[in-house]
Design a protein around this nucleic acid. Structure first.
Length: 261
DNA sequence: AGAAAGCCTCGGCCGC
DNA sequence: TGCGGCCGAGGCTTTC
């Protein structure tokens, strides 16, 4: 589920625990998969004071008085503080909470509990995450940064959709945001990056910034204009054409073959 | 039954 | 022709 808009809402939620001290923490073997062991998480977090929050793309960072703590949410992860998701409508699928889907978290000295709720177990915690492996953040991307996102070293480069999903180029764009900005810009997701002309680049950057801004106001990645067409037999809400579907950049991609070219 | 809004690894092959 | 690195495919995991 979560893309940069959702992770930003988790970050704002996490701001509520700034100042608290961690009594103890735990993580199951999946959530701690990137660590040497689940115990490494418990050891790293015990006694830490949460001093702030930050975010790069889909990576949430809890700053502490010692080492930064990272959380990646995978496809179905949600952050909860005492059972509160902080934002309406962000729960995946059935919109339900189950205690057995709580994969780990932190017990705080003020009695509150910050947890990662994740049915499909693709969320991960990290200790001192490598923030610089990620590209510039999608919510503050400038045109100059966007031009570097589109830079190609050899040949025509990958499909534009694949490049938009490349977290080392720009951090935070997931499948839905990528399809929405391509839809708005009128760009075929299969277009090799190196083949985009200046008009398309300009339109795409404009659609990029407007998409994150407007979907942020609406309440999440799933509130895009093209979402209604994201079904079998779906039709383009702009011109009524049957939508095309294919796997591009490893993800299911919907686009309008009439106005996206 | 098959697909799912993320991420990681691996192998093939592109292009210098 | 050799090689480093880019890029796409596939797997992970569980649910509906």
């Amino acid at each position: 589920m979560p893309e940069v808009l959702e992770i930003e809402s988790y970050r704002r939620l996490a701001e509520r625990v700034v100042g608290a001290r961690v009594l103890s923490g735990w993580a199951d073997a999946y959530l701690a998969r990137k660590l040497v062991s689940p115990e490494a998480w418990a050891v790293a977090v015990a006694g830490r004071r949460i001093t702030g929050t930050s975010r790069r793309g889909k990576l949430l960072v809890l700053e502490t008085d010692t080492v930064p703590l990272g959380v990646r949410f995978g496809m179905t992860g949600v952050l909860l503080v005492d059972g509160d998701a902080g934002l309406e409508g962000l729960f995946y699928g059935p919109h339900q909470f189950r205690e057995e889907w709580v994969r780990g978290g932190l017990e705080l000295d003020d009695g509150r509990r910050l947890v990662v709720h994740d049915p499909r177990r693709l969320a991960r915690v990290e200790i001192d995450p490598d923030v610089d492996a990620l590209g510039e953040d999608a919510l503050t991307l400038t045109r100059a940064q966007f031009d570097r996102v589109l830079a190609v070293t050899r040949g025509d480069g990958p499909a534009i959709k694949a490049r938009l999903l490349d977290q080392s180029r720009v951090a935070g764009v997931g499948n839905l945001l990528a399809d929405e900005m391509l839809f708005r810009a009128g760009v075929d997701p299969r277009t090799p990056v190196g083949r985009l002309d200046e008009d398309q680049r300009r339109a795409l950057f404009r659609a990029f910034t407007r998409t994150v801004a407007s979907l942020g106001r609406r309440g999440g990645s799933h509130t895009g204009d093209h979402m209604v067409a994201r079904v079998p037999e779906g039709r383009c809400p702009r011109d009524g054409a049957p939508m095309a579907v294919a796997t591009i950049g490893g993800r299911t991609t919907y686009w309008c073959p009439v106005h996206q070219r």
